[in-house]
Amino acid sequence: MRAAVCAAHGPPETVRIGELPSPEPGPGEVAVRVGAAAVNFPDVLLIAGRYQVSVPTPFVPGSEFAGTVIGIGPHTAGFTVGDRVAGTGMYGAFAEEVAVPAAGLTRVPEGIDDRTAAAFGVAHRTAHHTLRSVVRVEPGDDVVVLGAGGGVGLAAVQLAAHLGARVIAVASSSEKLDAATENGAHHVINHRLRPLRDALRDAVPDGAAAVIDPVGGELSEPALRSLRRGGRFVTVGFASDVIPRIPLNLVLIKGVTVQGFQFGDISAGEFDRNERELRDLLATNEIRPHIGGVYPLDDVAAALRQVADGRAVGKVVVDVSR
């Protein structure tokens, strides 16, 4: 099979397309013919050897995919050959075939294509679990979303608006802000054109209920200052590649909560509820991921570069079927 291979840690351009043996599903695993795979920022960090978990080279990058079951390993139940599925993992998705634990797969709803199914996973799950179980957003809440043009940010815009929040989208270009507006943002801010602290003071003079931050860097502190007393600041990643330093006096004075998001922190009951809600939103077409770029497998390095440089609008997808 053809696959993208990271032979040595480095920039996206170190990834090359090569021929590898087809993976054999082991006990509890399923083999999937990949139709499409989505690019996430941690893929870039993993290839660079700068992620919080290190993967020895050589390896096949890619953490999110959708496709069709082509093989069932021993002692594996719940799926049959021909089932359409989507899944996530640490690596392996940028290939024509992948073998993964069956427990990590979900069925793709009827009528949903592989590109959409692949792009809907990580970003929308992160955003929805954050909004429902960490922020606990209520209709009418003012929610500030940083990095609102990226994968997680744009998903947060969509889902917060769907939940009835008033969404203030912050991004770095008119293209990204146009996408945020199309996906439900009520107010948009280009932080390159005006100091974010001043823009947020005008947008939410009484203070925001929550900030969703997948970016970090210099935007975090002015966004934290925009919170009302008792508001929530949730950090879900550092796409800027800069971990911010937050003055704790702001947390004390404003009485706000600063919290990091991890899937493992969500209670089992709420996790299942959130997942059911997401599946229904996808199956009924109420929420669709915004796909801002599609590349063939041969151009996977270019897809990774678009995400690495912060130029992606919504999700970038590698169409392996091409």
Rank of each mutant, 00 (worst) to 15 (best):
H186Q: 14
A199V: 03
V122R: 03
L219T: 09
A203R: 00
L131H: 09
E175M: 07
A185S: 09
D178H: 10
R136Y: 10
V152N: 09
H128S: 05
L146K: 02
V145H: 04
S226Q: 04
T235P: 01
F233H: 12
G149M: 10
V188R: 05
A161M: 14
L200F: 05
I168E: 00
A123Y: 06
T116G: 06
H186Y: 05
L227W: 01
L200R: 01
H128R: 12
A165T: 12
G230D: 10
A160N: 11
D206T: 08
A127I: 10
V170H: 00
A203E: 00
A185R: 04
A155D: 11
F120R: 08
G184F: 11
G184S: 13
A171G: 03
L219A: 09
G140T: 15
D141V: 07
I212T: 02
N190Q: 09
G231T: 07
V188Q: 02
S174A: 15
V188K: 00
D141Q: 11
L224K: 05
D202Q: 12
A203H: 01
V167A: 08
G149F: 10
Q158W: 13
H128D: 06
R228E: 04
V167G: 03
D213A: 13
G231Q: 05
L163A: 15
R192Y: 11
F233G: 01
R229Y: 06
T126C: 11
E182F: 04
A185G: 10
A179S: 12
H128K: 05
L200P: 00
D114H: 12
L131K: 06
R225N: 01
R232A: 07
H128L: 15
A179D: 04
A223K: 01
R201V: 01
N190R: 08
A209Y: 05
G207P: 07
N183L: 12
E138H: 15
I212Q: 00
D178W: 01
L177N: 04
D141Y: 09
L200Q: 01
G149L: 09
L200K: 00
L227Y: 03
L193R: 15
T181R: 15
